[in-house]
Amino acid sequence: MNMTASLEWDHSGEAPVLQVVGSWTLDQRKPELSEVWRQGGRLPEQLAVHVNVAAWDSSLLALLRRLQRLATEQQVALNLQGLPDGVERLLEMADSPSTQAKEADKPAYGWVARLGLGALTVTTAIANSCIFIGEVIQAIGRLFAGKARMRMSDFWMAFQQCGPGALPIVALIASLIGLILAFVGAAQLEAFGAQLYIANMVAIGMTREMGALMTAVIMAGRTGAAYAAEIGSMQANEEIDALKTFGFPPLEFLILPRLLALLVSMPILTVFADALGVFGGFVIGAGLFDISASQYLNQSLEMLTLTDFLIGLFKSLVFAVLIGLIGCYYGLSCGRNAQAVGQATTNAVVSIIVALVISDAVITLICTQLGI
C-alpha cells in the first residue's frame, strides 16, 4: 500500500470514484483538495469516496469534513466507503448539534416560588456559614490544645504575603489619606485661625477610624481575593478532596495559617498606617500653614489617648477575622471550573468590603454610646 497521502479519481467504472489512499498523517505532504476536486468535472448526484489508508490522524478527518462541505455546495451526496474504525463516529459527532452544550431553559416561577427559593437560598447560605464558623472555632480549639495539623512553614509564608508584602501599598494609601484629611480639615479650620488643630483631627481620624479601615480595605482586595482564588483553584482542581482523602483536615491545613497570619499582621499594618497618616497630615500642616514638627507632634500626642489607639487595634483584629473567614469561605464553597473561581473571588471581595463597613459602623456606634 502506498504510504504517501494520495487523493485521485478513478474513472474505470460507470461513475467516477474518489480514492483516498496512503498515510494521512500530519507529517505527510498532502495533495491540494481544491485542484483534485476540479479535476472530477461534472459529478453525479451520488459520489462514492473510497477510503483505504494505512495510517490516519486528524488530517483525514479534516479532509473528509472539507469534502462534505464541497459536496454540499454542489448538492452532491457523498457515499463514504471503507472508513477506519472510529472515523465514522467522529464525523457523526462533528455533524451533530447535540455535541454543543445547551443551556437548559429556566422554568417560569411565580412570585411566590421566587420568594420561597430566595428564602431557601439565604437560609442555606446562613447555615453553611454557621457550620464553617463552628468548624473554624473547633480548629482553633485544637490549635490551642496542640492537636491541630498546621505547618508553621505555611503560617510564615502566609504572613510574608499579607504582612511585609503589603507594606508598600499600605504606606502609599495611608500617607494619601492623611494628606486628604489634613487638606479637607484645613479648608474649614483656616476660617477660624485654628490650623494647629489639623494635628488633632488627623491623629484622631487615623487612629480610631481611617487607619484600620483603609488597611482592611486594601487587605480585602489584596489578601482576601488571593485567599478566595487560591483555595477556589484548589477546590476546582480537586486538591482539597485529595487532602481529605489522605486524612488532612482542610480547615487546619489551609485556613488556620492564613487566618492567624492576618491576625498577626493586621494590627502591625494598622499601627504603620496610623504613623504614616499622621506624617501625611504633617506634610500639609508644615507645607501650607508653617506648623513646626514639634508643635504638630505635641498637639497630636496631647489629643491622643490610649483608648483611641486600642480602639483602632481592636477594629483591625475584627477586620482581620472578617477578611480571613469570608475569603476562605468563598474559596471552599467555589465550584469546579475557572468561571466559578472568578465568581468566588468577586463575591469574596464584595462581601468583605460590605462586612467591613457594617462592622466599623457598629463598633463606632457602640463606642459612642459607651462614651469611649
Score class of each variant (00 low, 15 high):
G287W: 01
I352L: 04
L304D: 09
L26N: 09
C328D: 09
I133E: 04
A108Y: 13
T207H: 03
M303P: 00
L259C: 10
G146L: 12
I358N: 01
T124I: 00
L370H: 06
F183Q: 11
S23Y: 05
L181C: 07
L120Y: 13
L213R: 04
L67D: 05
Y296M: 04
V202P: 00
S98D: 12
V136N: 10
R258W: 04
D95S: 14
Q369F: 13
E302R: 12
D95G: 13
D274V: 02
P257L: 11
V357Y: 10
W9C: 09
S300R: 02
P250R: 01
E209W: 00
L304N: 08
F183K: 04
E209M: 01
R151Q: 11
I240K: 09
A220P: 05
V53W: 09
D154M: 09
A54Y: 06
L301T: 08
L47G: 01
G165F: 11
S294T: 13
V357I: 15
L259F: 11
S129K: 00
L332T: 03
E45F: 12
A48S: 14
Y109V: 08
N200E: 07
A5L: 09
G371M: 05
F289C: 02
V21K: 15
A127K: 05
E88C: 03
Q19E: 11
L325P: 02
A108G: 10
G86Y: 11
L325Y: 02
T124R: 10
A186R: 00
L117R: 15
T25K: 13
S294H: 12
V341Y: 00
L64H: 07
I291F: 04
V36S: 03
I204W: 00
V318G: 12
L60N: 05
M93Q: 15
I291R: 04
A77F: 07
S359K: 02
V362Q: 02
T364E: 04
A355H: 06
E32G: 12
A113L: 08
I240T: 08
L256M: 11
K244T: 13
C130N: 09
L115R: 10
R66L: 10
F314N: 08
K30S: 13
V350S: 01
T123G: 10
A119P: 01
A216M: 03
L26E: 13
V53T: 07
Q369K: 11
E32T: 12
P31L: 11
R65Y: 03
P168G: 12
G178M: 05
V278Q: 10
C367D: 15
N2H: 13
V278M: 15
A119N: 06
F272K: 04
